[in-house]
Design a protein around this nucleic acid. Sequence first.
DNA 1: ACCTGAACACCGTTCAAGT
DNA 2: ACCTGAACACCGTTCAAGT
Lengths: 230, 230
Amino acid sequence: MVTARRDPDAAKAPAITREALAAAGLAVLRREGLDALSMRKVAAELGVRAASLYWHVHDKEELLDLLADSLLWDARRLTKQGAWDVCLREMAVAYRCHLHANRDAARVMAGRMAPGPNLLYVLDTMLGWLRAAGFSGADAARATRTIATYVQGFVLQEQLPMSALEGRAHPAEALSAAAEAFRAAPMDQYPNVAAMADAILADDMDDLFLFGVDRIIDGLRRLAGAEAQG
Amino acid sequence: MVTARRDPDAAKAPAITREALAAAGLAVLRREGLDALSMRKVAAELGVRAASLYWHVHDKEELLDLLADSLLWDARRLTKQGAWDVCLREMAVAYRCHLHANRDAARVMAGRMAPGPNLLYVLDTMLGWLRAAGFSGADAARATRTIATYVQGFVLQEQLPMSALEGRAHPAEALSAAAEAFRAAPMDQYPNVAAMADAILADDMDDLFLFGVDRIIDGLRRLAGAEAQG
DNA sequence: ACCTGAACACCGTTCAAGT
DNA sequence: ACCTGAACACCGTTCAAGT
């Protein structure tokens, strides 16, 4: 039954694998959010005590690294064929959509720096498009990082209200407090903010996101033209 | 001596003010970093016990809100006169520089959503430039948020290594592990990452930052032209 | 009005000890 | 090799009680 690796008798089950650890972490994350994710709870999810985790993982940090990469698991399906600028735009949209689908995903990603295989795959795809479009190696690398930075930064801010409101005394209070700060801006000190408070607040998040993406890609188009001429 | 506000006898000193709280928080932040910033330590900085803080502040969250805004205190001096695109670029550079000057500043800012007076001032200035340049109210609002998102997201990633390395067993290990992940990318699975690993890693952070800023501003220039025609 | 003592219910991490 | 018990040194927050 069990595929024996190197142990002929295969008596002992692997018990906790790194995959199981990531899965358990994801379960806790989905159910309770990042702030409530503790080693003790992840251990309990596996029917084990907290101290046991430290055999498989050096740190809570390392557990979160595992989590971060497994959050990108189905980001691999995002590959598309077509014009480079259209592809980049779709990738940005899909990446945001994907982060949105997992609770606190942006916060988990933002905390880490080691790229797992799934992130490498996404980066590789984008780099391929840009190289094929004629961008220099340096500019292709810079462009992918610029877009990744923007998308992560955007979703991070976007998901903040949700996680900030969790278990707060008055849930909608934080949100409306932020809105009030804009609306209550004194006209003499902050004339533009006061005049445009409604425009700032009423903005649809999808529109706002696409505005930034389109500015970046427009800028990249201009650069592509300049490189083609030079 | 003491400027009596409304208390005629002026016997009792104000003891802990909100400003003093923010200053104490900043001191702890600078000395020990965000991960080590606890209510108990901030209280100790003021010569007081942790429980006392809850009279002046509802939450640790609220204390961090105070901190976030006071981090932007001297961002007010960033005002410039000149062409809107040059101003925006300089503002972005100065904002990054300013975040860089304070330990974990990006992480503190990224966690909060309520804008304090100092952030309002910065936003107001940028909005003013864009309105004067002929952008519609909606586009000006979107443009400022796009740039703010990019700068914060960038510095957040930039400051991660520093805070991730604090007190770690092997300090440089995390950094080189991330670098190794890029360099070790299998050529058959991630051909572009493997080929451009050096380009990705060798990038100067200043260049990388300006690349993104210039793409965004180039995109905004194109939009300004389109609006002028339409 | 403002601060304290003491407690509650948690944390991450370590380490001897078990099997 | 892998898991446990028990402890250490912390947390944020609450609340009666002091002044």
